[in-house]
Structure formats: C-alpha cells, structure tokens
Design a protein around this nucleic acid. Structure first.
Lengths: 145, 145
DNA sequence: CTGTCATTAGTGTATATACACTATTTAAAT
DNA sequence: ATTTAAATAGTGTATATACACTAATGACAG
C-alpha cells in the first residue's frame, strides 16, 4: 500500500523510547542550526562557556553534567575553528576558556535560531505538555547521582 | 555547605533536557544489565533479532529505526562474542541474522532484568505518568521523517 | 541474453560519550 | 622544607550514531 503511514509505534521499552526521542529532537535542532555551522551539542558548549567565562574544563563539565574527558575532545574542534580560546598563563594548572569575538558573534546568531526551535516545540506540543515533559525528564535525570 | 543537594535544575533547553534524561535512563538500564555483560543498546539489538530472525541488516535497521551502517558496527561485537550468526549462503546478497543458542540464553536472562527495570520506572514515576511520557516522546519522534 | 537499475552490504570519517589511567600542578600537613 | 593529598588536564580505548561513498548482487526490460 502506497499510503501506509510510517509505523512508528512506541516501543514497550521506556529506555528505547527516550533514546529515540532524544535522537529525534537532536536531529531537529541540528537541522535548524545547520546554517550557523553548528550542531546543538556544540551550541550548548558555546552557550555554557558564554555564561560562565572564563571557566576551567572541570567547572564546565560540572555545569554541563558531562564527563570532563568528553569535553576535552568536544572543545578541540571549537578551539581549532577559533570560537573559543584559553586565556590562562602557560604552565598553570587550570585552563581559562572564553569565547573569542567570532565565537560570541556566532553564539548570538545561534541563540536566535535556538529560540525559534524552542517556540516551535511549544507550539507543537502545547505549553502545558512541555512543562509536564520537563518535569518528568527531570525526575528521570534524578535517578542518576 | 556540606549538605547542599546537587543542583540539577532542568535546562531551559528542551533538547538538552531530553538528551540528559536519555543518558540518565540509559545509564540506569546499563547498570542493571551489567551482570549479563550487556549494555541496553546491545540488549535491544538482540531482542529485535530474536523477534525477527532470520533477518537482514537492512530490515533490522528499519525495525529499529537506526541507520543501517550503525548496525554493521554494533552487530560486529555481538557476532564476535558468538551471540548471533549469519545463516545466509556465501555469495548471496542478503545476510540472515539469527541468535545462536548462547545468544538466546543470554537474551532471555537479560529480558528478565529489563523487565525489572521497567517495573522500577513505573513504581518511581507512576503508571499514568509513564503513559503520558510515552505519548509525549512518541509525538517528538514523529517530528523526524 | 544483456544492460540498467534497485537492493544490500560495507568502509571512511566525524561527532558524542564515558571509564581507566597517567601526568602535572597546587594546597595542606607535619 | 618536604611529603602527601587534592585538583586539573589529558590520552587510550570502547561504544554509539549517521552521512557520503563504494562494491557487489539480484531483478527486470528490451
């Protein structure tokens, strides 16, 4: 049958449903951010640095709730592209990351796109539903120390 | 302050909240499945093969809603560990994957653990809430073709 | 038959994630 | 002042994911 709508029934597995929804919304945000040349994860990194700068890798990892070693790699490409820089003196223990001028400009552009994506989701699901979703997701996150 | 509870406020970003919840629940299921020597993603693979066998990589990818090339790699370790096998005749185009005897035994064990994990989540969030969550996640998944 | 086209599988590369481990620097204790 | 402990950064490896691309097989038109 030509017009069979794609069969996308939820799985019985709650974990799989969450993983799929996460992948789907990541894809949506990624597509919208494509004109900026950023993926949503990279945008998240820049936005966090913007609000914390100057910041060490460890503190950034704490704030983002990601493993520190994950950030070491993810920061690399942003540094190579000249969106962030380390203003710590050489030979010191802690790095001090901040946005470059270019990085700030890009982040502000991306924030506008992100804002549209946020609004789209509220329009799509409804304000109450998004609030309910956020609450449920927060409880799930709390499962992990 | 010693007793400050960890600050885990939701982000303003719906995408980030979903990504974090997905990581959290994946971690929970992974931990519970550790005695089986499986991660939840690997278990998902085995469980899907079990219900479709014998199955080609392409059909498995369709059913799991993952990219086919993702499966090529993820299947490899399961094959190397002898949990799945390809019963297609050599020189034919399509693979025919199925569980080995060992693979089936492991999958059944893991299904019991998975079932406990599912029950735990319902106890934790409540039956109605899990249903609501599933509905919301399903709508989000529908955002992507 | 033969040539074209769809199907199926796989590789190369990039991103994202975390654990186990090492190395270095700073702070604290004695 | 020296030793010890904590903090900070980084590497090696494994898993998970997808896109662009290549290669081989099978089906069908003529």
């Amino acid at each position: 049958m030509e017009f069979t709508t794609r069969n996308k029934k939820p799985s019985v597995c709650n974990c799989l449903n969450l993983r799929r929804a996460s992948q789907a919304i990541t894809h949506v945000y990624d597509e919208l951010l494509k004109p900026c040349g950023l993926r949503v994860n990279q945008f998240s990194l820049l936005a966090h640095i913007k609000s914390l700068e100057p910041v060490s890798v460890s503190d950034l990892a704490l704030a983002m709730r990601l493993d520190r070693t994950t950030l070491v790699r993810n920061l690399r490409s942003l540094e190579e592209q000249g969106f962030i820089e380390d203003i710590a003196a050489t030979g010191t223990r802690s790095r001090q990351l901040k946005l470059t001028e270019r990085g700030l400009k890009l982040t502000l552009e991306a924030e506008a796109v992100w804002s549209e994506a946020q609004n789209s989701l509220v329009n799509y699901l409804g304000k109450e539903e998004v609030a309910a979703l956020t609450e449920l997701l927060s409880k799930i996150e709390a499962l992990v120390p």
